[in-house]
Design a protein around this nucleic acid. Structure first.
Length: 408
RNA sequence: GGGCAGGUAGCGAAGCGGUCAAACGCAACAGACUGUAAAUCUGUCGGCUAUGCCUUCGUAGGUUCGAAUCCUACCCUGCCCA
């Protein structure tokens, strides 16, 4: 058995890392681990309130996987306890407290998706209600006594809110402590998280120290930008690429990412080997189009396999680059086959537009074609007997094949 | 419990008796441009077979020829005082 040499491990583990605190503690931990032949316990907390994973989440999951592949122990903490309480101060008013059952379900769903990245057989899953729910009030006070308000105010968002006279609920101070307690319970050696988790991860160190444990190393990965190229990837910002999305969808979305992010994506969310990364960097600059195709292919392959990735590339070439009509477009059959039908209604009923008004606008903008011929009159109606079938296209991406009700 | 400030389209934010389906910004959508993009430019962005009509400005009533704009009650949010 035994672990690979520490320098080799570090080479893998430091890929794409945004920050490491303290700097040299990881090396020490790894050396100790190798000497004693004991795997490191690497903790990652997940929020079960949003079970749909996207590429942004995979950055940190991939990091955890790298630890696994080197023989270390992954510990996935499902934050079911905090999920149960909910977060009443969150911006979103409607964030209902989930039941234990729901958080468990979300946790399972999260894990199923995470299994695309992690090695599920070597992942220890823990629910933090296991210990947090058992704490008495005096224990909570004891925990809270380990940290000072001044320290809490070191956190940027607390600080700015406090200075701006905005409210901070007391319980908000408790969340970082709860997360820190998780680290104590599972005796983590390393905790992973995005750079936005910095403060919480550091609190973990303090509390572990107070409990007499060797404090964990905090390893932070960057927050991946979404398809818009600026904001961090997030479902609510509508710039996310979900890992369960269809291959074509995924491929297209990756292609829509700005060129500047090709290398970053490659480094953070693909399994492109370390020594190939410099080439990617060079190619991204010299030939962004091909580099991005490679990236899209690599990403789709990881979640759907080689064949699906090839198919997705062909699909993209054909429909987007050449502007051809895709093969598998949805078929719409008008309800009644009598006489004529207004195009507006047809578009709306086929689900291509939200309303007739939207349909009319799009026609006026020259965005609607029937069998590749642009429709310029919004009063256009189609003869349900003579004109069918035809392909109706709205904008670049919305299609329907309109067929007669009785046609075979 | 008291005082004050607010609740406007997906979000942010103007409007404060008529010309408001409601400025402006962001997002979104479409067109042009490109290597897919990004950036940029142009346009659209409540609904309706439509030079008009209908439903919207926290909720419910009321005053007015006419209300997002005034009045009353209620709900909600934030700040301040106790």
């Amino acid at each position: 058995m035994g672990f690979p040499p520490v320098d080799d491990q570090l080479a893998v583990l430091m890929r794409g890392v945004a920050d490491l605190v303290p700097e040299d503690a990881l090396r020490e931990k790894l050396e100790h681990s190798r000497k004693t032949d004991t795997p490191l316990r690497v903790k990652l907390g997940c929020d079960p309130s949003r079970p749909d994973l996207h590429l942004g989440h995979t950055v940190v999951l991939r990091k955890l996987r790298q630890f696994q592949d080197l023989g270390h122990q992954a510990v996935l903490i499902v934050g079911d306890f905090t999920g149960m309480i909910g977060d009443p101060t969150g911006r979103s008013k409607t964030r209902p407290a989930l039941t234990l059952k729901e958080t468990r379900e979300h946790g399972r769903s999260y894990f199923e998706q995470a299994a695309n990245v992690l090695d599920p057989d070597r992942t220890e899953i823990r629910y933090n209600s296991e210990w947090l729910d058992e704490m008495s009030f005096s224990e909570v006070i004891e925990l809270a006594a380990q940290h000072t308000v001044a320290r809490m105010l070191e956190r940027e968002d607390f600080k700015t809110r406090y200075e701006a006279g905005q409210p901070i609920s007391v319980h908000e101070f408790l969340y970082p402590l709860a997360q820190a307690q998780d680290s104590v319970e599972i005796q983590s050696d390393v905790e992973l998280g995005g750079t936005d988790q910095r403060f919480n991860l550091l609190v973990g160190r303090h509390i572990q120290q107070a409990e007499g444990q060797d404090p964990q190393v905090c390893l932070m990965v960057p927050l991946l930008e979404g398809t818009d190229g600026h904001e961090k990837m997030s479902k609510s910002l509508d710039n996310a690429i979900g890992i369960t999305e269809a291959p074509e969808e995924m491929y297209g979305k990756v292609m829509s990412v700005p060129d500047a992010l090709i290398y970053r994506y490659t480094e953070l969310v693909t399994d492109t080997p370390l020594d190939a990364l410099p080439d990617v960097k060079a190619q991204a600059k010299a030939n962004p189009r091909d580099a991005k195709h490679n990236l899209a292919h690599a990403i789709v392959r990881m979640y759907h396999g080689e064949d699906a990735a090839d198919a997705a590339r062909d699909h993209f070439e054909k429909t987007v680059v050449q502007g051809d009509t895709p093969d598998d477009i949805p078929v719409f059959t008008p309800e009644s086959g009598n006489g004529t039908m207004g195009l507006l209604n047809l578009m709306t009923e086929a689900g291509l537009t939200e309303s007739n008004s939207e349909a009319r606008r799009l026609i006026k903008q020259g965005a609607v074609t029937i069998d590749d011929e642009t429709v310029d009159n919004w009063r256009h109606s189609v003869d349900l007997d003579a004109d069918l079938p035809f392909v109706l296209q709205v904008g670049k991406r919305r299609y329907a094949r309109v067929e007669a009700p009785t046609s075979a």
